[in-house]
């Protein structure tokens, strides 16, 4: 038994090393002094916070961070609200076109985004959405919806809806039945789909570099690709690493605290029980 435990523990450590290597490497770079940043050492030989101070001094990173947060939050909220409506209908109502809707959203989840970049770029230039928050938010909602509808429909199917009826029989108004009974039961599913949509949106790169051109709407992943460092003579590696670490923090937080929910959400659409 002890031997088996040791073996499992060893295997766990190998996985941990595989997962941690690139994360640690970018963290290490972000703490390296500019004079030692190209020395290739695994541990920083000269620790510094200079890279972090640098990116917060210029507006380049702060504006991108503002765009990233604003665009991701708005897209997530709208996508989850729309997806909740659709998922409720899919889980609870009988109507023709249900399968078509599921099929279309599956198609969109697998859609090669590059196929849309050219036309979206041209359409957004014509109607004035190019390089605006809206120009990214609208496609992000569309690409967040399929996953959200999937996870929510799976969650909504599991909710014991008889409870709602029972509450009404016991004299609750429809509003009370919804607020006291249905909403608390649906909340975990809604939270899960919100996390998944947020992660997808926070990550998005192709549309972010194609449909923006200035700091007015460029998100952090896109801004990183155009980063020049605090001054143009400075090697941008330190700044990029520091910015990369900062945008990784919220995601690591989500993963640490909502691990169970993320797993449930990611697998709910794929398993047919």
């Amino acid at each position: 038994m002890r031997r088996r435990k040791l073996a499992w523990g060893g295997a766990d450590l190998v996985v941990l090393a595989w997962v941690a290597f690139p994360v640690w490497w970018i963290v290490a770079l972000s703490f390296k002094d500019p004079s030692t940043i190209t020395d290739g050492s695994f541990w920083p030989t000269k620790w510094t916070l200079q890279n972090y101070e640098g990116i917060f001094k210029t507006s380049q990173f702060l504006l991108a961070l503002r765009n990233s947060i604003g665009i991701a939050v708005i897209s997530t909220v709208v996508a989850v609200v729309f997806a909740s409506l659709a998922a409720y209908a899919i889980a609870r109502l009988r109507f023709p076109g249900k399968k078509v809707l599921i099929g279309v959203s599956l198609l969109i989840a697998m859609f090669p985004q590059i196929s849309l970049v050219t036309p979206l770029f041209n359409i957004e230039r014509v109607i004035g959405l190019f390089n605006t928050w809206g120009g990214l938010i609208i496609p992000y909602i569309a690409f967040g919806l399929p996953f959200a509808i999937y996870t929510l429909a799976a969650f909504f199917r599991e909710i014991p809806w008889e409870l709602e009826k029972a509450a009404k029989v016991d004299g609750a108004t429809p509003m009370q039945a919804f607020v006291r009974v249905v909403a608390p039961l649906a909340a975990p599913g809604v939270a899960t789909s919100a996390i998944l949509v947020f992660v997808v949106t926070w990550n998005e790169f192709l549309l972010a570099i194609s449909l923006t051109s200035t700091t007015a709407s460029r998100t952090v992943p896109a801004a990183l690709a155009f980063f020049t460092g605090a001054s143009q003579f400075q090697n941008p590696i330190g700044s990029i690493a520091a910015a990369a670490v900062i945008i990784t923090i919220p995601i690591v937080f989500f993963v640490l605290f909502f691990q169970r929910r993320i797993i449930a959400g990611l697998t709910s659409g794929a398993v047919k029980g």
Binding site: V199, N203, P221, T248, V252
Partner: peptide
């Protein structure tokens, strides 16, 4: 489980830079 999930959350661009 948490450890295995981490790369899923890391922004692709961040990992690519690393």
């Amino acid at each position: 489980r948490t450890a295995i999930l981490i790369p899923y959350g890391i922004v692709t661009v961040v990992a690519a830079f690393s």
